[in-house]
Design a protein around this nucleic acid. Structure first.
Lengths: 228, 228
DNA sequence: TTGCGATTGAATCGTTCGTTTGACATTGGC
DNA sequence: GCCAATGTCAAACGAACGATTCAATCGCAA
């Protein structure tokens, strides 16, 4: 196996750029090493020479952006916690720290905005489903850290309920990233990601904060258990 | 191409059952026709004989459950609309009509509960991304119908905002289905889907109803182009 | 029993996949 | 000029894929 550092130029960089574009367009499984090498008119063997395997290339593609995104997430969260030390950290700030770093990384790539978000969406959608252990570990660290922050900000909500709500939120975020191009509405074109994320934060804050814990006493029949 | 009706017994049924289980476990792309036929100790040619192609089999697997789910969704929505005619249809009822049919179909399959929800999640996750046109059309009909109902129930929310919020909600639902097994929490085992869906409805209602339209005046950055 | 359509079986087709090989080209230091 | 490191190249490998072929077999009405 070759080094796992991210190249700033040269043929490795060229391959990574091509791979990331194709992965974003068609998904991780739908792109072969031949697709990638032909895209930049290089030889098939180049991928295995530079990355050891297709998997190695995939790992680097993901690491190149998922890494910085997760780091910025944690940095923003800690900065916010310092700022609100003593007082309780508002829910909006946590969610903001979780989603806004997605915006920060988009300009560092040659990809179009939409494609970049799709790439990120695909990364977070798998969430350790066949991804390399390195990536999986980093994702887990981040989500654990945020889960604790959410718990502090929402002390009246039970653990099980909270886990569920966080899952709902992350699901919405993934869907938002991967289906961003479906948000276009008639006359006006696509809303900017800035606007979409702001909308998402409002949505998520409301859903997370809703009431307190859900009464989980299933009364009798399969469907008569609503009391909101 | 052979007939597109869903068999109640016989070798076609046996193949469909095997395919649906494997698709649910590993995903649509990760299962070969050889996997399916070997699973029930039939010949490789059986799939192409009975369904015309792998794609034909996949379409039937999806149609067998996505069909009834969507039909029940529409039936429940119309029933609720009749019940609340005149008065405004409450948001909870719309979402309930959208998600509860998922519960109704689970007992009609030999699959374990968890696997069945994964299957449904995979279906709705693709949402016309490579699925057969027949299925795509039905999904589109249903989501159009519900989008209109949501619009009526939330008249103060702008169209673009509403589309975004519905996307957030469906994303959460898909994630909930596919990652249901991650909702387990320490001591107590998995919460029942009944409970999880109830939680989801509360979450979604709160997010959808939140305030009115989002103020979309982006303060300084380059993208200030919204005026609804 | 005979005949016939429906089904199954083993074998094989042509493709595509990730990966490997070994020859060849390029480069920089001595 | 020479060596070794580095990179590129065409070619091929074995495995897996969906699909097809065609003979063997089955169920069952005539």
């Amino acid at each position: 196996m070759r080094e796992l550092t991210i190249p700033e130029s040269g043929p490795k960089r060229k391959l990574l750029d091509a791979a990331e574009q194709l992965f974003a367009e068609k998904g991780f499984e739908a792109v072969s090493v031949r697709d990638v090498t032909q895209f930049v008119k290089m030889n098939v063997a180049a991928v295995n020479y530079h990355f050891g395997s297709r998997e190695g290339m995939l790992t680097l593609v993901i690491l190149r952006y998922a890494g910085p995104v997760n780091e910025e997430r944690l940095a923003r969260l800690e900065s916010a916690e310092r700022k609100w030390a003593g007082k309780g950290l508002p829910l909006e700030e946590i969610i903001d720290a979780f989603v806004r770093p997605l915006l920060g990384q988009v300009r560092k790539t040659a990809l179009s905005e939409g494609l970049f978000y799709k790439l990120l969406g695909r990364i977070f959608a798998e969430n350790g489903d066949g991804l390399s252990p390195i990536i999986e570990e980093r994702l887990r660290q981040t989500s654990d850290r945020f889960a604790r922050a959410f718990g502090k900000a929402l002390p009246t909500i039970g653990a099980e309920e909270l886990v569920a709500r966080i899952h709902f939120m992350t699901g919405g975020l993934v869907h938002l990233l991967t289906h961003q191009d479906m948000l276009a509405n008639g006359a006006s074109g696509l809303p900017s990601m800035e606007v979409t994320l702001t909308r998402f934060i409002r949505f998520a804050v409301a859903g997370l904060r809703e009431g307190t814990d859900t009464e989980v006493v299933v009364k009798k029949g399969p469907q008569a258990m609503f009391d909101f």
